[in-house]
Design a protein around this nucleic acid. Structure first.
Lengths: 159, 159
DNA sequence: TACGCTATGCTTAGGCG
DNA sequence: GCGCCTAAGCATAGCGT
């Protein structure tokens, strides 16, 4: 049977759909590879499917996280720049202060504890830490988490 | 001149590279559209290029954020489940405590300040806040950010 | 179910306006 | 720089294994 024009709709046949997904997934990632190489851009892709036990993350979980955090940073920055009313000023102030804190964090980079806490706070996951950093830090970590809890409670009571 | 096989390397010619990027970007997004429709999967893609003033987010910033948060949730869950060694215990403890703090945060949901701070800390952006929350809170916010700074400094000095 | 094969449709490099 | 055009090269549907 000759190949016909693809009907661009949900493929109801289970095995056909699974096959198409497998093939097109690899095709898509190949295209992503190519445009990244040819143009030297930064990109990532995430796909959830019933056919993979885990989400498919291209090019890698680590690089994807970097792209995502860059995106988050930029989009919130753009938003704060666009706003000029009272609320906008508050947003800008928040951005600036957070940047200041981030800068201080960088200065303290040798402090492993701060590093751990920060990654935790920002939800970046704990993959970027040097090997062994998490060892022997249980006490310190739980101590500082209690500190955060107290901070939240204070915020609650004061607010 | 007949079309030749593409050399899969960085295109040094500026205009050619820009052209290729424009074309392949649209091609890539079309492919993403197609696989999503054909197989009904959930996916997103982010691309940073010198040719776009803003990052290109497919299918939309909102849907991308949903996919990203789903990925984050799943990956941290998988990580904590997979690990069984000393470092794994530490990770699990971190996860649990952070969940606890998150739960407490939910209990305090009526506290607008806590909500603002939390969203800020987690880098979720400030878009999900109810209207007007950010108004008249400048003083409170900067106060609490100073609190965070002090916390980081303590972490530094103690570490 | 996944993979290899091949014909066919689609993508896109190169050229032009 | 962008969009159109055409043909060369690629992706992939349908089938067999």
């Amino acid at each position: 049977m000759t190949r016909s024009k693809v009907n661009l709709a949900y493929i109801s046949n289970d095995s056909a759909r699974r096959n198409t997904f497998r093939r097109r997934k690899s095709g898509l990632m190949k295209k992503a590879e190519e445009i990244t190489r040819l143009c030297e851009i930064e990109a990532c892709a995430i796909m959830f499917s019933p056919y993979d036990p885990e989400p498919v993350v291209w090019p890698s979980p680590l690089q994807a996280q970097q792209v995502i955090s860059r995106y988050r940073k930029m989009s919130s920055l753009e938003q704060s720049k666009k706003l000029v009313n009272q609320e906008g000023f508050t947003r800008q102030m928040l951005e600036k202060t957070m940047e200041k804190v981030t800068k201080k964090q960088k200065e303290n980079e040798h402090n492993q504890m701060t590093q751990v806490m920060y990654q935790c706070l920002y939800g970046r996951g704990l993959d970027n830490l040097p090997d062994g950093v998490l060892n022997n830090m249980s006490g310190l970590i739980s101590q500082n988490l209690r500190e955060i809890e107290r901070f939240l409670q204070r915020s609650h009571h004061n607010g």
